[in-house]
Simulated scan of single mutants.
Amino acid sequence: MIKAKNTNLLLALVCFLFTNIALAQSDIILKTTGEEMKGKVLKMGESTIQFVYENETIEYTVKKSDIVKITFSSGRVEFFNKLNTKSNNYNLEDHHNKVAILPFGYLKDQQTSNATMQKKIQQETFSIFKRKSASLKFQDPNTTNALLAKAGINNNNIAGYTMGEIANILGVEYLVQGMVSIEKTTVTSYSNTNTTTKRNGNNSLRVDRHGHIIGDIWNSNKRKTNSSTFGTTQQNYATNITMNIYNDKGENIFTKDHQSFWQTPNAYKITLGFLAKRTPIYKR
């Protein structure tokens, strides 16, 4: 069951990465209204550009005055104007060294609807990176979630956005995204036996004034033993975490999958720290 689950997660990650690689082959125009155009820049004039959408053939003329930036398929970015601050509250040129952590995907015993845990893990990941931020500025998760909500991005439609688009919406250069998978495995039983022994005090011997022995001569040295046994059980869990880092061009610059050695329900906390230390944005 665990191997099948890990295989499904790996396949989903591969599909996601191939989707982003395919999108990276297009030129992306971000307009001052926040609209994005994906396709190919054919020609750049003094005040306009000629553009064709991906999988289409009709050429469009776009004014440079309506463009914030063009992210070319080569990875080069050219800025033109600033975003319309009436509908957006960030400046794309200020992305540098800013990092946002998205709510983590959370899967426990195949249940995926725990929004509280998604945000809890997001906050814990933020705390891990914040302690080693160095020159990077990590966006508070409350700000991240508010900006996502204002943009209408939620768990149901986030798959329709590229990581580059989300980075632009959040106004950051890097995004931390991940998945925590926890599943019940074995049950371990523990038992403990407690034994107490004491001498039988009612059978002590003594001699009276006439020289007669008083007491139970046969049982005087016997001891009384009591035993009690206590048993407990512990449910074990398998915890697997995938962590990804994307830049504002939508490129995956780090991905790593790790299964926790520990078998407790909170083993994900140790594993988060293990993975965070191996990312390029964790400054030692």
Score class of each variant (00 low, 15 high):
203 N>G: 00
158 I>Q: 07
242 T>G: 15
215 G>T: 02
214 I>R: 15
200 N>H: 02
218 W>M: 13
246 Y>R: 00
201 G>N: 07
214 I>F: 11
203 N>R: 02
249 K>F: 01
147 L>D: 09
207 V>D: 10
159 A>I: 05
139 Q>F: 06
208 D>P: 09
174 Y>K: 12
131 R>G: 10
267 A>P: 04
220 S>A: 13
156 N>Y: 03
151 A>T: 01
243 M>C: 08
251 E>H: 05
196 T>F: 04
160 G>C: 03
204 S>M: 12
187 V>A: 00
170 L>H: 02
216 D>L: 09
131 R>C: 03
253 I>E: 05
201 G>C: 00
209 R>I: 07
187 V>W: 01
212 H>K: 12
220 S>V: 10
254 F>V: 00
241 I>E: 09
248 D>T: 00
132 K>R: 13
194 N>E: 14
242 T>D: 15
223 R>C: 00
214 I>M: 14
198 K>S: 15
171 G>T: 07
177 Q>D: 14
160 G>E: 11
180 V>I: 03
232 T>M: 03
163 M>N: 15
153 I>P: 14
222 K>I: 00
177 Q>M: 09
153 I>V: 14
267 A>F: 01
267 A>H: 04
156 N>M: 06
223 R>L: 04
155 N>D: 13
177 Q>L: 05
198 K>E: 15
129 F>N: 08
230 F>A: 08
150 K>A: 14
249 K>Q: 05
129 F>I: 04
130 K>L: 11
216 D>E: 09
159 A>D: 13
239 T>K: 07
201 G>E: 13
190 Y>K: 11
208 D>S: 06
253 I>R: 08
267 A>L: 01
159 A>N: 15
181 S>L: 14
175 L>Q: 09
149 A>W: 02
138 F>K: 07
228 S>P: 03
210 H>R: 15
136 L>G: 02
223 R>P: 02
268 Y>Q: 07
240 N>H: 11
147 L>P: 09
146 A>F: 08
169 I>H: 10
255 T>E: 10
139 Q>H: 02
157 N>E: 07
179 M>E: 07
137 K>W: 07
225 T>F: 04
266 N>Q: 11
187 V>C: 00
178 G>K: 08
167 A>Y: 11
263 Q>F: 05
173 E>V: 07
203 N>Q: 02
174 Y>M: 01
235 Q>A: 01
168 N>Q: 12
181 S>W: 09
218 W>E: 14
259 Q>M: 15
205 L>A: 03
